[in-house]
Simulated scan of single mutants.
Amino acid sequence: MYNLKEKEMIFVFTGPDGSGRKTVAKLIRNTLHMKGVISYTTRERRHYETEGQDYHYVSREEFMAAKDNGEFLECVEIDGNFYGIKEKDVEETFKNKGCIYLVLNPEGSDIVKKLYGDKVVRLFVYADRDTVKARQEERGDAPDIVAQHLAHYDEDMEYRQQCEHAFENYKLDHTAFEITNTIEHYLKLKAEQKKAEKQ
């Protein structure tokens, strides 16, 4: 397991599929110049997704070989597909930045939180069921995929109570602004701690 250094932090964007967690993360990344670590998955790429930006799409055989080799910091199986973050990707990203972000489902978020405790801040992004359903339909998800996601909605929403922060995402720019302020607060605290240690 990669050991986080004193100054290093992980911000995890989580919440139900269709809540906008990935879109919000990308907006904040550009504002704060944060670096994200992209998950690997065995599921098929959707028409609106881009390799290396949304996920690294690999075969089940490739994923399982990496898993057996102990390459994943966290990995989960959802609806027959595997998802995981590689430890070396986290380590490489931390070489240039003191904080990184991940976009994970609640199960993956929980694993990372248990690994790193207070160094992980979970940012739960959500919307009501009808809004989530409409967003998935608008982006062109097939009806069976939408139904599959909605089957997890209530369980995913329960995870909100365990997260450090929760944001209702109805207006994207407003949500991004709120989360940016929250992250900046943590970064400011870290900077102040570092300054105090030097005095």
Rank of each mutant, 00 (worst) to 15 (best):
M1Q: 01
M1N: 06
Y2L: 11
L4T: 09
L4H: 06
L4K: 04
L4A: 05
K5Y: 11
E6G: 02
E6I: 11
E6R: 12
E6M: 08
G15N: 12
G20S: 08
G20V: 07
G20W: 03
G20C: 05
V24G: 04
A25F: 07
K26P: 00
I28E: 09
N30F: 02
N30W: 03
L32Y: 00
K35H: 02
V37K: 13
S39I: 07
T41V: 10
R43K: 04
R43W: 00
R46H: 02
H47A: 10
Y48K: 08
T50N: 13
E51K: 02
G52V: 14
D54R: 03
H56Y: 15
V58D: 02
S59M: 07
R60M: 12
E61D: 14
E71D: 15
L73T: 14
L73Y: 11
E74A: 15
V76Q: 03
V76I: 12
V76F: 00
D79T: 00
G84M: 14
D89P: 13
E91Q: 14
T93S: 15
K97S: 13
L104Y: 05
N105T: 07
G108K: 06
D110Q: 10
K113F: 01
K113S: 09
K113R: 12
L115D: 11
G117E: 13
G117R: 06
G117L: 05
K119W: 06
V120Q: 09
V121H: 12
R122H: 04
A127D: 12
V132L: 06
V132D: 10
R135V: 05
Q136M: 15
E137I: 07
E137F: 00
E137D: 01
E137L: 06
E138L: 00
R139W: 01
G140P: 04
D141G: 07
D141P: 10
D141C: 12
P143N: 12
I145V: 11
V146D: 09
A147E: 14
A147G: 13
Q148Y: 10
H152R: 15
Y153C: 13
D154I: 09
D154E: 15
E155R: 11
D156V: 06
E158V: 07
Y159C: 08
H165S: 13
N169K: 01
D173A: 14
A176L: 05
I183Y: 02
Y186N: 03
Y186A: 04
K188D: 05
L189S: 02
K190T: 09
K190C: 06
A191M: 07
A191G: 03
E192P: 00
Q193V: 04
Q193T: 11
K195C: 03
E197D: 10
K198A: 14
Q199Y: 10
Q199W: 09
